[in-house]
Amino acid sequence: MKHHINFSVNGDDYSLAVDPWRTLNELLREDLNLTGTKLGCGTGDCGACTVMVDGRTVSSCLTLAVSVNGKSVTTVEGLAPSGEELHPIQESFIKTGAIQCGFCTAGMEMSALHLLNNNPEPTEKEIRAGLSGNLCRCTGYNQIVEAISVAAEQIRDSEHEKEER
């Protein structure tokens, strides 16, 4: 029997009936056509499917769709504040060369967002630890680590500016 769930994704409200075994990853990719979130392993090991649920990162491949009832989900498509502007994390990923094949990127960016929300001034070691649930086979991670530290700085600078104003 299908379950009826109400939830929001990137600020948009949805109301759907889903099978009890449907994963959040299937819900996003198959039902809502939000394919920015990838599926790399299906067993919660690679981090490519990472999304935020109520401000915490989860592996969408291991999260059941029914469990997001009443919750708010953020995916890579919701990262940029508007259609035009990029989030500082996206900007720095582009600028530093942190993106090669791009398949881990959405998950990396969501993990980075979670990290910076909780620790605006991470050390390199903390960034590496924060990414330990996200695998990448192209970049060797160095430019991703650099991207996150550049983004952290940029976010701090822009918040500083806001305060001064």
């Binding site: 498509e77 990262l79 990029l86 582009i94 791009g102 990127t105």
Partner: peptide, 8 residues
């Protein structure tokens, strides 16, 4: 291609 990948 980086922007398209960064945006998903």
């Amino acid at each position: 291609d980086a922007e398209a990948k960064a945006r998903g």
